[in-house]
Write a protein that binds this DNA or RNA. Structure first.
Length: 596
RNA sequence: GGUCACGUAGCUCAACUGGAUAGAGCACCUGGCUACGAACCAGGAGGUUUGGGGUUCGACUCCCUACGUGACCA
């Protein structure tokens, strides 16, 4: 489609040369898809040309339209409305374009001239609690963006940086020591990540009680928060961990192990994967080396108390602490180390960080610091900043217990999909296992599509009732369209209708033309989505494709048409639509069924 | 206090990066299954794009300002 558009532009540029004897390079022309209410496929906006050509917008449109229909075989007609020249493309050209696309292998890359070695870091959980709704947006985005970049031909590594050390996990450990009585996930019958989460909550509960008590005794609030015994103990534990205390380290290992088992189960269920795992416990020391490097290069400075800082005022930021006075690291310290390590491992020319927008400032600082250090990979860092997920009741707050648990949510959407599918689905002859796989596929389709169809940058609202809907602008709507196509193809096969594209198709139906144009846009959709790091563009495309196909289904007979050529052509068009629906959905991490 | 986002139909989201009469879905109303799958399709109603100013042939989009929401920095 892009090619066709470019060659039309070139033709327009030539037309301007011929008719007005003026030079207007093709790149300067604004060509856009024609709006639905007008005839034509491409529209040239002629307003910008009036000055250069010294004519009115209608006059220009008329003259160019006439020249093109006479001299350019692919342009079959035109009309001018105010400053808009609408060009109609010959049906033969659409059929030719479609034929070309049908021969394209499904996994052919869409070259964009973009980065080739890519690392996408996403998920990046803390190990003190199970995944929740916010993590789901992150996971789905990261997975999808990685797949989209792969589709452009890049070599992509999916990385997960696990935050396995720090005060948060010590809190869970402490509570477990005090109240756990050695229980294991197996004994408790709870997933490991949920078990650890339970103790984290327990810590918070008792800790807050202690703070309240201290306050009742007249201690100031901020002091009480720092002096509460459980907080002091947790900090002791962190120090013991850093010192390598055997007992603490072994408990830490055991509890993190449980969490990983739980996470792995969740990752498998939601269908995301990673090529490389990083653990902060293994990388945080590397960050200190970078700080040392910065001190030696003179781009960082040490304050009297021994803490290390960087001055980013010239970059429009502030002074930033890099290492505490006691030599312990802060978040950014370890990020410096991990960035270096990733570069050593993969030599990326693009490193994507899928991180919520609350860390915009932090990521700016990271990039600026790496630049100060003169790191060649600083500019390759891209922060894919996404908005928070709100609930109808407001913000999710773990303190108030309003977080939506990922595992529970997956369960719910699957259950909802099951209910409807049992009622309306065509499940004859399917085994129980196949049925369950289908329910899961549809439930996840609904959930993933719901979270991915919104522009990543924007904060979004998660409405539980809407997220399990299967009608309208939803994943299952698109999955349904695919199932329909599969069914049609099967029937076509039994009726001996081929999927070949005949030499002569005749005049196209308007909706056929529209469908071909959409199908032809697939590579453009992928490349736009890659450039914008936006799965939402793919979701939008898949929806348009399914929607237009359904209109085609309702308005045009396929197997019933008396003309044999039309029958095969329409089956071929259906088949290709199905392939691109599937390809698009797979880019979102959503699988599509043959029937449902 | 400072910095940065965002504000579009009752609700949830689009709008090709400055182009035509701002589009979809949900909800509401009307119509279409003895047709290849009705989880579908067609139609109706619903908008001062938060308010106010400016830039230009043209502004949801860019600039200024007020209000509202959110995040971050101490």
């Amino acid at each position: 489609m892009q090619q066709l558009e470019n060659s039309i532009k070139a033709a327009l540029s030539a037309a301007i040369q011929q008719v007005f004897s003026a030079q207007v390079p093709a790149e300067q022309l604004t060509l856009q898809p024609t709006r639905k209410d007008f005839a034509g496929s491409f529209t040239l906006v002629t307003f910008p040309l009036t000055k250069a050509l010294g004519k009115g917008p209608e006059q220009i449109g008329q003259a160019l339209g006439e020249w093109l229909t006479a001299n350019e075989a692919r342009v079959s007609g035109f009309n001018v409305v105010k400053g808009f020249l609408n060009l109609e493309i010959a049906d033969s050209e659409w059929v030719r374009l479609f034929t070309e696309l049908s021969q394209r292998p499904d996994n052919a890359p869409v070259p964009t001239g973009g980065p080739q070695q890519v690392v996408v870091e996403y998920s990046s959980p803390n190990t003190n609690k199970p995944l929740h709704l916010g993590h789901l947006r992150n996971n789905f985005l990261g997975y999808s963006v990685a797949e989209i970049l792969k589709a452009t031909g890049a070599t992509v590594t999916k990385a997960n940086l696990v935050n396995d050390r720090g005060i948060h996990i010590c809190k869970s450990m402490l509570a477990y020591q005090q109240y756990g009585q050695g229980e294991t996930p197996q004994e408790a019958g709870i997933k490991g990540d949920h078990l650890i989460g339970k103790y984290y909550v327990l810590f918070e509960k008792h800790y807050r009680e202690q703070v309240r008590q201290l306050e009742a005794e007249g201690v100031a609030s901020d002091i009480a928060k720092r002096q509460a015994p459980m907080m002091l103990e947790a900090q002791d534990m962190l120090r013991a961990w850093e010192a390598g205390d055997e007992e603490v380290v072994s408990l830490w290992r055991q509890m993190n192990g449980w969490v990983y088992e739980g996470f792995d189960e969740t990752y498998a269920t939601i269908g995301v994967d990673f090529d490389k795992m990083y653990y902060e416990s293994e990388t945080y020391l590397l960050g200190k080396e970078r700080v040392e490097e910065g001190l030696q290069k003179g781009v960082f400075f040490r304050k009297d108390d021994g803490s290390v800082w960087v001055d980013l005022k010239e970059e429009g930021l502030d002074e930033k602490l890099l290492l505490r006075a006691d030599g312990t690291s802060v978040y950014i310290t370890q990020d410096l180390g991990t960035a270096e390590l990733k570069y050593q491992d993969f030599g990326y020319d693009l490193s994507v960080y899928v991180i919520a927008d609350e860390q915009n400032y932090h990521m700016q600082v990271l990039k600026a610091v790496l630049k100060k250090l003169g790191k060649p990979y600083a500019d390759a860092i891209y922060h894919l900043s996404y908005g928070m997920v709100d609930l109808p009741s407001g913000k999710m707050k773990s303190r108030e217990g309003t977080v939506v648990d990922a595992d529970e949510l997956v369960q719910e959407v699957t259950e909802a999909a099951k209910e409807v599918t049992l009622q309306k689905g065509r499940l004859e002859g399917m085994t129980e296992a196949e049925k369950n796989r289908l329910f899961h596929m549809l439930g996840m389709g609904a959930l993933k599509y719901y979270l991915l169809k919104v522009d990543p940058k924007k904060r979004m609202l998660f409405n539980p009732e809407e997220s399990v809907k299967l009608e309208g602008d939803t994943g299952p709507f698109i999955q349904y369209s695919h199932a329909r196509i599969s069914s049609l193809r099967q029937k076509a096969a039994t009726m001996n209708v081929g999927e070949n594209i005949p030499e002569q198709v005749g005049v196209l139906h308007e909706v056929e033309r529209e469908l071909i144009q959409l199908v032809a846009r697939y590579p453009d959709a992928v490349s736009e989505a890659a450039k914008a790091y936006s799965p939402a563009l793919i979701a939008q495309y898949a929806y348009d494709l399914a929607k237009t196909y359904n209109r085609f289904w309702n308005e045009v007979p396929v197997l019933q048409d008396p003309d044999e050529a039309k029958r095969s052509f329409r089956v071929a068009l259906s088949a290709q639509t199905g392939r691109f629906i599937k390809a698009s959905m797979l880019l979102l991490g959503i699988d599509v069924p043959e029937r449902m």
